[in-house]
Simulated scan of single mutants.
Amino acid sequence: MKKIILSLAMAAAIVSCNSSKTVDDPLAESGRTQRTENLLANLRKISANGYLIGHQDDPVYGVGWVGDSCRSDVKSVCNDYPALIGFDLGHLELGDSVNLDGVPFNRMREEIIRQYDRGGMVTLSWHLDNPLTRGSAWVKPDSLTDQEKQTVASVLEGGECHEKFLGWLDTLASFLNSLETPYGVKVPVLFRPWHEHTGSWFWWGQNLCTADQYKALWKLTEDRLKEKGVNNVLYAYSPGTEFAGDADKYLERWPGDGMVDVIGFDTYCTNNPEDTTAINNYRNGLDLGLKTICEIAKQHNVVPALSETGMESLGMENWWTEVLMPVLNKYPIAYVLLWRNAHDKPGHFYMPYPGQKTVSDFVKFYNDKRTLFVKDINGLYLQVN
Protein backbone atom coordinates (compact mmCIF):
# COMPACT_ATOMS: atom_id res chain seq x y z
CA MET A 1 0.00 0.00 0.00
CA LYS A 2 1.26 3.47 -0.82
CA LYS A 3 2.18 5.90 1.91
CA ILE A 4 -0.56 8.29 3.05
CA ILE A 5 1.42 11.49 3.40
CA LEU A 6 -1.22 13.72 4.96
CA SER A 7 -2.71 11.53 7.65
CA LEU A 8 -3.09 14.14 10.37
CA ALA A 9 -4.25 13.65 13.91
CA MET A 10 -7.04 16.09 13.20
CA ALA A 11 -8.55 13.90 10.47
CA ALA A 12 -11.67 13.42 12.53
CA ALA A 13 -12.42 17.06 11.84
CA ILE A 14 -13.40 16.17 8.28
CA VAL A 15 -17.18 16.18 8.26
CA SER A 16 -19.17 13.81 6.10
CA CYS A 17 -21.37 15.30 3.39
CA ASN A 18 -24.26 13.49 5.07
CA SER A 19 -23.83 15.51 8.25
CA SER A 20 -26.51 18.06 9.08
CA LYS A 21 -24.24 19.87 11.52
CA THR A 22 -22.89 23.28 10.52
CA VAL A 23 -19.15 23.55 11.09
CA ASP A 24 -16.91 26.54 11.63
CA ASP A 25 -15.38 28.04 8.47
CA PRO A 26 -13.10 30.80 9.81
CA LEU A 27 -11.12 33.37 7.87
CA ALA A 28 -7.34 33.48 8.04
CA GLU A 29 -5.35 36.72 8.38
CA SER A 30 -5.01 36.78 4.59
CA GLY A 31 -8.77 37.21 4.22
CA ARG A 32 -9.14 33.78 2.66
CA THR A 33 -10.76 30.93 4.51
CA GLN A 34 -8.49 29.00 6.82
CA ARG A 35 -9.15 25.82 4.82
CA THR A 36 -7.94 27.59 1.67
CA GLU A 37 -4.72 28.59 3.42
CA ASN A 38 -4.40 25.05 4.77
CA LEU A 39 -4.68 23.69 1.25
CA LEU A 40 -1.83 25.90 0.08
CA ALA A 41 0.34 24.86 3.02
CA ASN A 42 -0.37 21.20 2.37
CA LEU A 43 0.43 21.54 -1.34
CA ARG A 44 3.87 22.74 -0.25
CA LYS A 45 4.15 19.70 2.01
CA ILE A 46 3.00 17.34 -0.73
CA SER A 47 5.53 18.63 -3.24
CA ALA A 48 8.40 17.38 -1.06
CA ASN A 49 7.03 13.83 -1.00
CA GLY A 50 4.91 13.18 -4.08
CA TYR A 51 2.41 14.73 -6.45
CA LEU A 52 -1.34 14.62 -6.83
CA ILE A 53 -2.61 12.97 -10.01
CA GLY A 54 -5.38 14.93 -11.69
CA HIS A 55 -7.85 14.39 -14.52
CA GLN A 56 -10.07 16.90 -16.31
CA ASP A 57 -13.86 16.29 -16.05
CA ASP A 58 -13.16 12.87 -14.52
CA PRO A 59 -16.55 12.06 -12.88
CA VAL A 60 -18.94 13.49 -15.47
CA TYR A 61 -18.05 11.56 -18.62
CA GLY A 62 -15.48 9.19 -20.10
CA VAL A 63 -14.84 6.94 -23.05
CA GLY A 64 -18.21 5.46 -24.03
CA TRP A 65 -20.31 7.05 -21.28
CA VAL A 66 -21.64 10.39 -20.09
CA GLY A 67 -23.59 11.64 -17.08
CA ASP A 68 -23.33 8.52 -14.91
CA SER A 69 -23.21 8.98 -11.15
CA CYS A 70 -20.06 8.05 -9.19
CA ARG A 71 -18.34 6.80 -12.34
CA SER A 72 -14.76 7.51 -13.43
CA ASP A 73 -12.49 5.97 -16.07
CA VAL A 74 -9.61 6.28 -13.62
CA LYS A 75 -11.56 4.59 -10.84
CA SER A 76 -12.62 1.81 -13.22
CA VAL A 77 -8.94 1.08 -13.88
CA CYS A 78 -7.38 1.36 -10.40
CA ASN A 79 -10.34 1.50 -7.99
CA ASP A 80 -9.43 5.00 -6.88
CA TYR A 81 -10.39 8.53 -7.84
CA PRO A 82 -7.83 11.09 -8.98
CA ALA A 83 -6.62 13.26 -6.11
CA LEU A 84 -7.25 16.29 -8.33
CA ILE A 85 -10.20 16.90 -10.65
CA GLY A 86 -10.32 19.73 -13.17
CA PHE A 87 -13.33 21.55 -14.62
CA ASP A 88 -13.69 24.41 -17.07
CA LEU A 89 -16.00 27.38 -16.56
CA GLY A 90 -16.29 28.45 -20.21
CA HIS A 91 -19.82 29.74 -21.02
CA LEU A 92 -20.59 30.46 -17.38
CA GLU A 93 -20.13 34.10 -18.35
CA LEU A 94 -22.92 33.75 -20.94
CA GLY A 95 -25.45 32.55 -18.40
CA ASP A 96 -25.59 29.10 -20.02
CA SER A 97 -26.64 26.09 -17.97
CA VAL A 98 -23.79 23.94 -19.36
CA ASN A 99 -20.13 24.67 -20.03
CA LEU A 100 -18.43 24.59 -23.42
CA ASP A 101 -17.99 20.80 -23.15
CA GLY A 102 -21.62 20.18 -22.20
CA VAL A 103 -21.11 19.76 -18.45
CA PRO A 104 -24.06 21.21 -16.49
CA PHE A 105 -22.85 23.80 -14.00
CA ASN A 106 -25.17 22.40 -11.35
CA ARG A 107 -23.59 18.98 -11.80
CA MET A 108 -20.14 20.56 -11.72
CA ARG A 109 -20.94 22.21 -8.40
CA GLU A 110 -22.13 18.88 -6.99
CA GLU A 111 -18.97 17.10 -8.13
CA ILE A 112 -16.73 19.80 -6.67
CA ILE A 113 -18.39 19.29 -3.30
CA ARG A 114 -18.13 15.49 -3.66
CA GLN A 115 -14.43 15.75 -4.42
CA TYR A 116 -13.95 17.90 -1.33
CA ASP A 117 -15.85 15.41 0.80
CA ARG A 118 -13.72 12.51 -0.40
CA GLY A 119 -10.63 14.54 0.52
CA GLY A 120 -9.50 15.53 -2.96
CA MET A 121 -8.81 18.83 -4.68
CA VAL A 122 -10.34 20.78 -7.59
CA THR A 123 -8.78 23.08 -10.18
CA LEU A 124 -10.80 25.38 -12.45
CA SER A 125 -9.87 26.89 -15.82
CA TRP A 126 -11.92 29.40 -17.83
CA HIS A 127 -12.09 29.33 -21.63
CA LEU A 128 -14.41 32.32 -21.78
CA ASP A 129 -15.78 33.78 -24.99
CA ASN A 130 -14.37 36.92 -26.57
CA PRO A 131 -16.38 39.83 -25.13
CA LEU A 132 -15.51 42.15 -28.04
CA THR A 133 -15.89 39.93 -31.13
CA ARG A 134 -18.43 37.57 -29.52
CA GLY A 135 -16.39 34.67 -30.82
CA SER A 136 -14.93 31.84 -28.75
CA ALA A 137 -11.85 32.02 -26.54
CA TRP A 138 -9.76 30.80 -29.48
CA VAL A 139 -8.27 32.88 -32.28
CA LYS A 140 -6.18 31.96 -35.32
CA PRO A 141 -2.59 33.06 -34.61
CA ASP A 142 -1.70 33.46 -38.30
CA SER A 143 -4.64 35.71 -39.13
CA LEU A 144 -5.29 37.91 -36.12
CA THR A 145 -7.72 40.75 -36.69
CA ASP A 146 -7.30 44.27 -35.33
CA GLN A 147 -10.43 43.72 -33.24
CA GLU A 148 -9.05 40.57 -31.67
CA LYS A 149 -5.85 42.42 -30.80
CA GLN A 150 -7.94 45.03 -28.95
CA THR A 151 -9.96 42.60 -26.82
CA VAL A 152 -7.85 42.79 -23.65
CA ALA A 153 -7.72 46.58 -23.91
CA SER A 154 -11.50 46.64 -24.31
CA VAL A 155 -12.14 44.90 -20.96
CA LEU A 156 -9.76 47.04 -18.93
CA GLU A 157 -10.90 50.23 -17.24
CA GLY A 158 -12.02 52.74 -19.87
CA GLY A 159 -12.52 50.06 -22.53
CA GLU A 160 -15.80 49.58 -24.38
CA CYS A 161 -16.35 46.12 -22.86
CA HIS A 162 -15.26 46.97 -19.33
CA GLU A 163 -18.72 46.98 -17.76
CA LYS A 164 -19.71 43.86 -19.66
CA PHE A 165 -16.58 42.11 -18.44
CA LEU A 166 -17.20 43.16 -14.85
CA GLY A 167 -20.59 41.48 -15.16
CA TRP A 168 -18.88 38.32 -16.35
CA LEU A 169 -16.53 38.43 -13.38
CA ASP A 170 -19.49 38.90 -11.06
CA THR A 171 -21.11 35.79 -12.53
CA LEU A 172 -17.87 33.92 -11.92
CA ALA A 173 -17.76 35.22 -8.34
CA SER A 174 -21.32 34.04 -7.71
CA PHE A 175 -20.40 30.53 -8.84
CA LEU A 176 -17.25 30.41 -6.72
CA ASN A 177 -19.17 31.68 -3.69
CA SER A 178 -21.82 28.99 -4.27
CA LEU A 179 -19.33 26.15 -3.76
CA GLU A 180 -20.54 25.49 -0.25
CA THR A 181 -21.18 22.16 1.43
CA PRO A 182 -24.52 21.41 3.14
CA TYR A 183 -22.70 21.83 6.45
CA GLY A 184 -21.51 25.37 5.77
CA VAL A 185 -17.95 25.07 4.38
CA LYS A 186 -16.89 26.99 1.26
CA VAL A 187 -14.88 24.52 -0.81
CA PRO A 188 -11.35 25.77 -1.56
CA VAL A 189 -10.44 25.56 -5.26
CA LEU A 190 -7.44 26.42 -7.42
CA PHE A 191 -8.38 28.90 -10.18
CA ARG A 192 -6.13 29.00 -13.28
CA PRO A 193 -7.16 32.00 -15.39
CA TRP A 194 -5.55 33.43 -18.54
CA HIS A 195 -3.47 30.30 -19.17
CA GLU A 196 -1.15 29.50 -22.10
CA HIS A 197 -0.69 33.23 -22.60
CA THR A 198 2.79 32.72 -24.09
CA GLY A 199 1.05 31.40 -27.19
CA SER A 200 -1.35 33.42 -29.35
CA TRP A 201 -4.36 31.13 -29.72
CA PHE A 202 -6.47 32.76 -26.98
CA TRP A 203 -7.67 36.36 -27.01
CA TRP A 204 -5.41 37.12 -24.02
CA GLY A 205 -2.32 35.62 -25.71
CA GLN A 206 1.18 36.89 -26.41
CA ASN A 207 0.49 38.75 -29.65
CA LEU A 208 -2.90 40.11 -28.61
CA CYS A 209 -1.92 42.29 -25.67
CA THR A 210 1.12 43.88 -24.05
CA ALA A 211 2.73 42.55 -20.91
CA ASP A 212 1.29 45.46 -18.93
CA GLN A 213 -2.21 44.80 -20.30
CA TYR A 214 -1.97 41.13 -19.35
CA LYS A 215 -0.89 42.04 -15.82
CA ALA A 216 -3.75 44.52 -15.59
CA LEU A 217 -6.20 41.84 -16.75
CA TRP A 218 -4.97 39.51 -14.01
CA LYS A 219 -5.17 42.21 -11.34
CA LEU A 220 -8.66 43.25 -12.46
CA THR A 221 -9.81 39.64 -12.22
CA GLU A 222 -8.39 39.00 -8.80
CA ASP A 223 -9.45 42.37 -7.36
CA ARG A 224 -13.03 42.01 -8.59
CA LEU A 225 -13.41 38.50 -7.20
CA LYS A 226 -12.12 39.63 -3.81
CA GLU A 227 -14.45 42.62 -3.93
CA LYS A 228 -17.35 40.22 -4.44
CA GLY A 229 -16.42 38.17 -1.38
CA VAL A 230 -14.55 35.28 -3.02
CA ASN A 231 -12.27 33.96 -0.28
CA ASN A 232 -11.96 30.27 -1.16
CA VAL A 233 -9.61 30.52 -4.17
CA LEU A 234 -5.91 29.96 -4.80
CA TYR A 235 -4.52 31.32 -8.09
CA ALA A 236 -2.37 29.46 -10.61
CA TYR A 237 -0.19 30.99 -13.34
CA SER A 238 0.46 28.65 -16.28
CA PRO A 239 2.08 29.65 -19.58
CA GLY A 240 2.63 27.22 -22.41
CA THR A 241 6.03 25.74 -23.24
CA GLU A 242 7.20 28.75 -25.26
CA PHE A 243 9.47 29.94 -22.41
CA ALA A 244 11.73 26.94 -23.20
CA GLY A 245 13.56 27.03 -19.89
CA ASP A 246 14.08 30.80 -19.95
CA ALA A 247 13.06 32.11 -16.52
CA ASP A 248 12.93 35.73 -17.70
CA LYS A 249 10.56 34.79 -20.51
CA TYR A 250 8.44 32.77 -18.10
CA LEU A 251 8.13 35.79 -15.79
CA GLU A 252 7.64 38.38 -18.53
CA ARG A 253 3.92 38.72 -17.71
CA TRP A 254 4.14 37.76 -14.03
CA PRO A 255 1.15 39.35 -12.23
CA GLY A 256 3.25 40.03 -9.14
CA ASP A 257 4.29 38.30 -5.93
CA GLY A 258 1.34 37.86 -3.63
CA MET A 259 -1.07 37.45 -6.57
CA VAL A 260 -0.06 33.89 -7.51
CA ASP A 261 0.00 30.77 -5.34
CA VAL A 262 0.86 28.00 -7.82
CA ILE A 263 2.93 28.07 -11.00
CA GLY A 264 3.05 25.54 -13.80
CA PHE A 265 2.99 25.18 -17.55
CA ASP A 266 1.03 23.24 -20.16
CA THR A 267 2.76 20.75 -22.45
CA TYR A 268 1.58 17.79 -24.51
CA CYS A 269 3.28 14.73 -25.96
CA THR A 270 2.88 13.70 -29.59
CA ASN A 271 0.09 11.18 -30.18
CA ASN A 272 2.32 9.23 -32.58
CA PRO A 273 4.07 6.47 -30.60
CA GLU A 274 6.43 5.83 -33.53
CA ASP A 275 7.81 9.36 -33.51
CA THR A 276 10.64 8.83 -31.05
CA THR A 277 12.15 12.22 -31.83
CA ALA A 278 8.97 14.04 -30.82
CA ILE A 279 8.61 11.89 -27.71
CA ASN A 280 12.19 12.66 -26.70
CA ASN A 281 11.59 16.34 -27.36
CA TYR A 282 8.57 16.19 -25.05
CA ARG A 283 10.58 14.41 -22.38
CA ASN A 284 13.45 16.88 -22.61
CA GLY A 285 11.15 19.91 -22.71
CA LEU A 286 9.25 18.62 -19.69
CA ASP A 287 12.50 18.11 -17.80
CA LEU A 288 13.80 21.59 -18.62
CA GLY A 289 10.46 23.25 -17.91
CA LEU A 290 10.04 21.61 -14.51
CA LYS A 291 13.63 22.43 -13.55
CA THR A 292 13.00 26.08 -14.42
CA ILE A 293 9.69 26.49 -12.62
CA CYS A 294 10.97 24.73 -9.50
CA GLU A 295 13.78 27.27 -9.34
CA ILE A 296 11.30 30.13 -9.89
CA ALA A 297 8.98 28.69 -7.22
CA LYS A 298 11.75 28.93 -4.63
CA GLN A 299 12.51 32.52 -5.57
CA HIS A 300 8.88 33.67 -5.46
CA ASN A 301 7.62 31.44 -2.62
CA VAL A 302 4.99 29.67 -4.73
CA VAL A 303 4.14 26.01 -5.38
CA PRO A 304 5.30 24.34 -8.64
CA ALA A 305 3.06 21.99 -10.62
CA LEU A 306 2.47 20.59 -14.10
CA SER A 307 -0.78 22.30 -14.97
CA GLU A 308 -1.71 20.32 -18.12
CA THR A 309 -0.17 17.42 -19.97
CA GLY A 310 -0.88 14.11 -21.62
CA MET A 311 -0.57 11.93 -24.70
CA GLU A 312 -3.76 11.89 -26.73
CA SER A 313 -5.04 8.34 -27.42
CA LEU A 314 -2.23 6.82 -25.32
CA GLY A 315 -0.75 4.80 -28.15
CA MET A 316 2.54 4.10 -26.36
CA GLU A 317 2.04 1.13 -24.06
CA ASN A 318 4.58 2.15 -21.41
CA TRP A 319 4.16 5.93 -21.66
CA TRP A 320 3.29 6.34 -17.98
CA THR A 321 6.38 4.67 -16.50
CA GLU A 322 8.92 5.23 -19.27
CA VAL A 323 8.15 8.80 -20.39
CA LEU A 324 6.10 10.72 -17.83
CA MET A 325 6.97 9.33 -14.41
CA PRO A 326 10.79 9.37 -14.64
CA VAL A 327 10.74 13.12 -15.27
CA LEU A 328 8.05 13.95 -12.70
CA ASN A 329 9.86 11.98 -10.02
CA LYS A 330 12.88 14.27 -10.29
CA TYR A 331 11.09 17.42 -9.15
CA PRO A 332 9.15 18.63 -6.08
CA ILE A 333 5.88 19.42 -7.86
CA ALA A 334 2.50 19.39 -6.13
CA TYR A 335 0.38 17.95 -8.93
CA VAL A 336 0.04 16.97 -12.57
CA LEU A 337 -3.25 17.37 -14.46
CA LEU A 338 -4.03 15.02 -17.38
CA TRP A 339 -6.59 16.27 -19.88
CA ARG A 340 -10.06 14.88 -20.45
CA ASN A 341 -11.51 11.61 -21.77
CA ALA A 342 -14.10 12.88 -24.25
CA HIS A 343 -17.24 10.80 -24.70
CA ASP A 344 -18.09 12.35 -28.07
CA LYS A 345 -14.70 12.63 -29.82
CA PRO A 346 -13.18 9.22 -30.64
CA GLY A 347 -9.51 9.04 -29.73
CA HIS A 348 -9.58 12.22 -27.63
CA PHE A 349 -8.62 10.75 -24.27
CA TYR A 350 -5.62 11.12 -21.94
CA MET A 351 -6.32 8.58 -19.20
CA PRO A 352 -6.76 4.83 -19.69
CA TYR A 353 -10.13 3.12 -19.43
CA PRO A 354 -10.88 -0.61 -19.01
CA GLY A 355 -9.31 -2.52 -21.89
CA GLN A 356 -7.12 0.37 -23.10
CA LYS A 357 -3.55 -0.70 -23.97
CA THR A 358 -1.80 1.30 -21.21
CA VAL A 359 -3.88 -0.05 -18.30
CA SER A 360 -1.15 -2.35 -16.99
CA ASP A 361 1.47 0.39 -17.16
CA PHE A 362 -0.89 2.88 -15.56
CA VAL A 363 -1.45 0.53 -12.60
CA LYS A 364 2.34 0.49 -12.12
CA PHE A 365 2.24 4.28 -12.23
CA TYR A 366 -0.60 4.25 -9.70
CA ASN A 367 1.37 1.99 -7.35
CA ASP A 368 4.46 4.19 -7.31
CA LYS A 369 4.91 5.78 -3.88
CA ARG A 370 5.11 9.31 -5.30
CA THR A 371 1.89 9.25 -7.37
CA LEU A 372 -1.00 10.30 -5.15
CA PHE A 373 -4.67 9.51 -5.63
CA VAL A 374 -7.59 10.07 -3.26
CA LYS A 375 -6.80 7.03 -1.11
CA ASP A 376 -3.25 8.32 -0.58
CA ILE A 377 -4.19 11.67 0.93
CA ASN A 378 -5.98 12.62 4.09
CA GLY A 379 -6.19 16.12 5.43
CA LEU A 380 -5.62 18.50 2.51
CA TYR A 381 -7.76 21.12 4.22
CA LEU A 382 -6.50 20.62 7.75
CA GLN A 383 -3.97 22.87 9.41
CA VAL A 384 -0.34 21.79 9.12
CA ASN A 385 1.21 21.09 12.51
Score class of each variant (00 low, 15 high):
E93T: 04
L94E: 15
L94Q: 15
L94D: 15
D96C: 03
D96E: 10
S97N: 06
S97E: 10
S97L: 01
S97V: 04
V98M: 07
N99A: 10
L100H: 03
D101V: 03
G102V: 04
G102S: 02
V103Y: 07
V103N: 10
V103R: 04
P104T: 00
P104F: 02
P104Q: 00
F105D: 06
R107A: 11
R107F: 11
R107P: 10
R107H: 09
M108C: 09
R109E: 12
R109G: 11
E110S: 08
E111P: 08
I112S: 10
I113P: 15
I113S: 06
I113M: 07
R114E: 08
R114S: 11
R114Q: 09
Q115A: 09
Q115G: 06
Q115P: 12
Q115N: 15
Y116T: 13
Y116D: 15
Y116N: 11
D117S: 15
D117F: 01
D117L: 03
G120A: 11
M121H: 09
M121F: 09
M121P: 14
V122Q: 03
T123C: 09
T123R: 04
T123G: 14
T123D: 14
T123S: 14
L124A: 07
S125N: 14
S125K: 05
H127W: 03
H127D: 14
H127M: 07
H127S: 07
H127E: 09
L128G: 05
L128D: 07
L128W: 00
D129Y: 13
